[in-house]
Write a protein that binds this DNA or RNA. Structure first.
Lengths: 388, 388
DNA sequence: CAAAGCAAATGAAACGTTTCAACGAGTGAG
DNA sequence: CTCACTCGTTGAAACGTTTCATTTGCTTTG
């Protein structure tokens, strides 16, 4: 491919004129415009301003242009000025791909999407993706998203690394002993997880402090006078699930309440399963029946509220209910749901900050970060009644 | 940077042995391993298999390797076999960045995130992002996501194009006269919109057929015996909003029902605004009061249902309610909500198929596609009562 | 038997950048 | 006046591919 300079030479016009003729950025006499067009045609040139063109216009070497634009070597004020003028006149923008090849850094961060089943979708993650993109851009990076299957997730990660498509990864929706984390650790690929995997592996992560969150809401309920608190958690074994249960015990311990058998239920993360658990709780004798039900997700809390509504139990008055996540539904359900909000923007920013340190291979002093969620009090735990 | 061949020569071992020593892919006698390590160290070489290494091992030129791997020129069976063996033995994966620079094609599609206000988030878009990534990958592309501000969105698009970061774009959340579309058309950048902009511009898009959707649900209600149907739409002026209203008229016309004044309300896309509109409707005299309320979004329908519940009106029995979107909340609210589901996977696949045609610069015959949503009947329009 | 033709393989250029090593022109010290 | 330095600048190499133009070694044909 020819350069702009050659086109200009062939058309016997100044370089800048050739640029204007082809770009339309400024007016050029029709005769000249035509001859430039013809010259470009003849050379098979299509407008594409490179560092060479800037160098030609500024009458310096391309090395000098590079030094000026990256401020990576001393350049005299006069030349610097000429170069900047030329770059501006030609509206020059460096081609990132040239850079990438030379530096062997793509400035791209991989982020994999799962295929969430209907109803299990997390609106939360869409916002996370936004804030992540935003945070990453402030460091001059971009996010490359890809889809991966649930059964062999590592394949997609391996492929992206081996073909040099990305510099690192951000993982979300981590599982216990997540195979992706195992692979990335072994392959020594920079990454940060949004979520934990197990206690043995040492890797950088940011997670919501579910334990502290549930403790907060339990404390809030105890403060309202509740003394019989039930908890509907996930089946034992999930990292974040067990942490949340722990927060419940923390609060009860602190208030010197001893948890009764039957107050703790386990259910899958669905409205229906939680409703069934709530039904069990309702069957307890009124005198010992819990007056508050803590749920480890908003989805479950919604199931509980719907069930209580159907049974004629007044939620927020007869029985308080709380959730976790601050899903949009929390504001929309009747009564509106007390819950814990995860500070998405903050989480994303911290994940990205950690990742940048990993990419520089200078690990941050604190590579494991827990962020406390914020208690959002709504009608489902309104202090409307004195509990016996 | 040195090549694997040079390292092997310096360590006086075969190329493949050098590879094994450095990669650990196969066992190598400790003595040899050490001398290879030392040689690599001395040359400042870190393991990175390129086409040159494959060529060296197969004892052919790099051109031949390229031809074999891309099947882009005739190669004798014997050499082809040698090359494939060598590539496999070295676990060679082409570096995409070399390709990108040479072809000036990044095989990256840009997709911009908006910052949606809390409560206005669309869980739908998260799933769209997943299916889009999936579809794009089946063509060997990836999605580059970026965040852009609401006030000057085109800047981000321009930057990505001018620096050659992406080959094209997918837009979602399009507005009437969307400035992004105006820019991309003018800059002649390949893109496809998920949503329309206005009737004047000719560009490829895929959109949900809101008109047909609302017609479907109205038809369904009329089939149940309803004759007085109200509609709560968005303020006039939005493209998709107006289309949905049109579907309502279509169905009423077909059933020879003439819409009464007062049946049509306009409200912002929020639960509260829709509830207020529903309150107005409730004040109409019982004899002429609508028996069904169609809403142009699930969010609005939820506001309406909550309001009716509060007023003691039995939704699905006294008054039917419908929404649009099939948000997860539709299944969770009481009663569950009849609505229109957008076939996300299908929409994403069609958007991507269109984009691929645009990228090849051979525009598809049909560049504007409307996809009909699917009617999902739930309890909020149950046929429980004979309407007068 | 020479010329022509063909298939297979190769050397080298190109894509756009950064950066190393080298160079020339001043400047200050001896 | 010369030598050694510094500062500013430059040519060229390198990153990993693809692909053009050419060469090599055969086979066929007149």
């Amino acid at each position: 491919m020819a350069t702009l300079k050659q086109v200009a030479a062939l058309a016997k016009v100044p370089l800048l004129t050739a640029y204007h003729a082809l770009s339309g950025a400024a007016d050029v006499p029709p005769a000249q415009r035509e001859s430039v067009r013809a010259a470009a045609e003849q050379l098979g040139y299509s407008l594409n301003v490179t560092i060479k063109d800037v160098a030609a216009l500024a009458e310096v070497s391309i090395a000098t242009v590079s030094y000026v634009l990256n401020d990576s070597a001393p350049v005299s004020a006069a030349t610097r000025h000429r170069v900047l003028e030329a770059a501006a006149a030609l509206n020059y923008r460096p081609n990132v791909n040239g850079r990438i090849l030379q530096a062997n850094k793509t400035r791209l961060i991989g982020y994999g999407w799962h295929n969430l089943k209907r109803g299990h979708s997390a609106p939360f993650l869409e916002r996370f993706a936004y804030w992540m993109a935003q945070a990453v851009e402030s460091y001059g990076y971009h996010v490359l998203t890809f889809a991966h299957s649930a059964d062999s997730p590592t394949d997609a990660y391996r492929e992206l690394i081996q073909t040099n498509r990305v510099d690192g990864f951000i993982l979300s929706h981590t599982n216990r002993n997540d195979p992706r984390i195992r692979y990335l650790l072994e392959a020594r690929v920079p990454f940060v997880a949004f979520g934990r995997a197990n206690d043995r592996w040492d890797f950088p992560y940011v997670d919501v402090d579910g334990r502290e969150g549930v403790r907060l809401v339990a404390e809030h309920l105890i403060g309202l006078g509740h003394t019989r608190l039930a908890l509907i958690g996930w089946p034992e074994g999930s990292l974040s699930g067990d942490a949340r249960v722990q927060g419940y015990f923390d609060a009860l311990d602190a208030a010197a309440i001893s948890p009764q058998t039957g107050w703790i239920k386990r259910a899958e993360n669905s409205a229906a399963a939680a409703a069934a658990a709530a039904a069990d709780l309702l069957e307890m004798p009124l005198a010992t029946r819990p007056t508050a039900i803590l749920c480890v997700s908003d989805l479950m809390a919604v199931g509980v509220i719907n069930h209580l509504n159907r049974c004629g139990v007044q939620v927020g008055y007869d029985i308080a209910v709380s959730g976790f996540d601050d899903d949009p539904i929390a504001e929309l359900i009747q009564p509106s749901l007390t819950t814990l909000r995860q500070p998405v923007d903050d989480l994303a920013a911290q994940v990205v900050a950690l990742l940048m340190a990993e990419l520089e291979r200078i690990p941050a002093p604190q590579r494991q970060i827990l962020v406390a969620p914020q208690l959002i009090v709504r009608a489902s735990t309104a202090p409307q009644r004195q509990f016996p």
